[in-house]
Computed example of a mutant assay.
Amino acid sequence: MNNLTKALMEELTVEYVKVGPLQIPESVVISWVILAIVTIGSILLTRNLKVDHISKRQAVLEMAYLAGTNFFEGLLGEKGRRYVPYLMTVAIYIAFSNLIGVFGVKPPTKDLDVTAALALMSIVLIEGAGIRARGGVGFFKSLAAPTPVMTPMNILEIAIRPTSLCMRLFGNVLGAFVIMELIKLVVPVFVPAVFSLYFDLFDGLIQTYVFVFLTSLFMKETMGGED
């Protein structure tokens, strides 16, 4: 168990990379690498797209884009269409951040600061969408729904939402690491490799889905989707 405790503390410790006179968190540097890979990959994949004579590459890209767009529009409705590009971008970033562990790189989502930043960005979007949909007066009136007595609870909910998004993503990613370390202690050969594949691939994609799904649901509720 001492080895598990040591490994856990190492995972929770924020490493820094020296860039000139600056000390930059490792998670930030890895995020830059992910963004560079995604950007370059997007440029290469979207070159020479045509309206006619569609290639297999273009057909796959269009299918993926339509699947993502239909998924989020189905959750958000017509009023939330403008927010779909942001949600798809966040989904791509979190997915790559979780999957990068396959290559032996520490995922940025194991850094609580990264998950907190993602949650804060989402809650700003959620409340901003509510204000845009309801108007300033309508949004503040919604804080007193269904009765003025609930106002403190509704305001508290605004603070709880980003906390739940942050801790759910961070906790699940870290929890997968703890389970893997326990499996290595009990069965050190072969089995850990199978479970590692599951946690690094399948579970990472599940956490991506949960994060953007909850963000979409919160947005729909704030915009008045329950009406």
Rank of each mutant, 00 (worst) to 15 (best):
G104E: 06
S142H: 13
G138D: 08
L99Y: 05
V149F: 15
E78C: 05
A119S: 13
L120P: 02
G74Y: 08
A144H: 00
A144F: 09
M150A: 14
N70F: 09
V105S: 09
I100M: 12
I131E: 06
L66G: 05
F72S: 06
L143D: 10
A67R: 00
V102Q: 14
I131W: 10
A129W: 05
N154C: 00
L165Y: 03
G135P: 09
A145V: 00
G128H: 02
V124D: 05
P85R: 02
A116N: 12
A145S: 15
R132I: 12
A67Q: 06
R161S: 02
N98K: 11
I94H: 06
L87K: 09
A144P: 06
I92P: 00
L76M: 12
G136D: 02
L87Y: 11
V105R: 03
G104F: 10
V90A: 15
I94G: 05
C166L: 14
T69E: 15
K79S: 03
G136N: 05
G68W: 06
A133T: 03
K141H: 13
G68L: 14
K141W: 05
F139T: 03
A95M: 14
R81Q: 03
R132T: 12
K79C: 04
C166F: 12
F71N: 07
L156E: 11
Y93R: 11
V105C: 03
T89E: 05
E73F: 08
M88Q: 14
K110W: 11
T115A: 06
P146H: 01
T109F: 01
T69S: 13
F71L: 13
M121H: 13
A159I: 13
F96N: 10
T89F: 14
G101W: 07
L112Q: 03
A117Q: 06
V137R: 15
E157A: 15
G128P: 08
M153I: 15
A144K: 12
L125Q: 01
T151R: 13
G80A: 00
L165M: 04
A133R: 09
T89R: 04
G101H: 10
P108V: 00
G74M: 02
R82W: 13
P146V: 00
A119H: 07
I92N: 01
P108Y: 08
R134A: 14
F72A: 08
S97D: 10
R82C: 07
P146L: 05
L87E: 11
P152L: 07
F71A: 05
T151E: 04
F103Q: 00
F140N: 07
I158K: 13
I92H: 00
A144W: 02
M88Y: 09
P108F: 01
V137S: 14
I131T: 04
F71D: 02
A129L: 08
V149M: 14
P146F: 06
G130I: 04
P152M: 08
A67D: 01
T147W: 09
S142N: 14
E78I: 07
F140A: 08
